[in-house]
Design a protein around this nucleic acid. Structure first.
Length: 299
DNA sequence: AGTGGCTCCTGGCGGC
DNA sequence: TGCCGCCAGGAGCCAC
């Protein structure tokens, strides 16, 4: 599940190859990938030079002269420099002359591609919350964001309007690191706890970036390499396994439709919302273990 | 206003 | 063995 660290990993790799190249063609193979007409998309970027690769939350931005391509990987999106063998087909291909192409693969077909004139960027991202690593996202800001809120902490962290880039994996891991129960009401969090959570969010995201992302389902970088953050996860998808800190069995509940993992001892529920019967049912059923993707990275 | 829940989508897996 | 239905989840939308 590409979140901020995975998108940042992709961005960094693309940034070593794409700037200076000119987009020679944009081939949309799956029309569902964009709400825009493919000719309209192509007209915005074909013939333009790539100036920079940027990231905003979980969005990857290919900055062209006076226009942008905005890529969202959603659940299973992969941008690869090399095409895969059949039967996998890309949903779109961005060509940069005869030497370089970028192929977008996406099993669940949730990923999106958007083209915009540069002037449209601010409006496009207007509802998105602050970047975690920006000065705008301070401990104070987080505290103000939580104040008075009755929603569980986990739900608040996942809300991209409050904070951009945190998804299910990093929300669970950050809450574990902050020793805060995912069901704690936002408004019940004190100043010191908010400070702890702020630090935990930044540390967790930075660790994800340092490990080049989590390859739990299908994430690979544009060279086809897997990240390694999944190897040091504390709670995410570790249901029934001992907490790495205290040995207590890691639990799983369902919160806002998302699998939520925590250590009941390290993350006490004090001040939180009691799990409902539905939560408890989810606890007793560990997630199925998934086979690693059959996809073999290009040689 | 704030919040939960449904929808999109596919492959893997459990159950029968 | 084969089929059916459930499950995973980011973000947009809708209903309460």
């Amino acid at each position: 599940m590409p979140e901020l660290p995975e998108v940042e990993t992709v961005r960094r790799q693309l940034a070593t190859r794409l700037p200076g190249l000119t987009i020679s063609a944009l081939r949309i193979c799956d029309l569902k990938v964009s709400a825009q007409d493919q000719n309209e998309l192509a007209a915005l970027v074909v013939g333009r030079r790539v100036c920079a690769l940027r990231r905003r939350g979980k969005y990857l931005i290919v900055d062209c002269e006076a226009s942008l391509l905005i890529v969202h990987l959603r659940m299973t999106g992969q941008l690869l420099f090399k095409p895969e063998d059949e039967p996998r087909r890309p949903r779109y291909v961005i060509e940069f002359g005869p030497e370089t192409s970028l192929f977008f693969y996406d099993v669940r077909r949730f990923g999106t591609l958007t083209g915009l004139p540069a002037a449209g960027e601010a409006a496009y991202f207007s509802a998105l919350g602050p970047e975690p690593f920006s000065a705008e996202f301070s401990a104070r800001r987080l505290r103000d964001e939580l104040a008075g809120r009755r929603a569980p902490l986990k739900s608040i962290l996942l809300d991209q309007r409050r904070l951009a880039g945190v998804g299910n994996i990093y929300a669970d891991e950050a809450l574990f690191r902050a020793r805060l129960h995912p069901l704690r009401m936002g408004g019940s969090v004190g100043p010191r706890e908010a400070q702890r959570l702020h630090a935990a969010i930044l540390e967790t995201l930075q660790a994800g970036i340092d490990h080049e992302g989590s390859s739990i389902e299908s994430f690979v970088d544009p060279a086809g390499e897997r990240g390694s953050f999944q190897e040091i996860l504390n709670v995410y998808q570790r249901t029934g396994e001992p907490c790495r800190v205290c040995g207590t069995v890691v639990q799983r509940i369902k919160l806002g439709g998302r699998g939520t993992h925590f250590c009941p001892r390290c993350q006490p529920r004090r001040g939180g919302i009691a799990p409902t019967a539905r939560h408890m049912r989810a606890v007793s059923r560990p997630p199925r273990t998934r086979q690693p993707p059959s996809f073999a990275p290009p040689q």
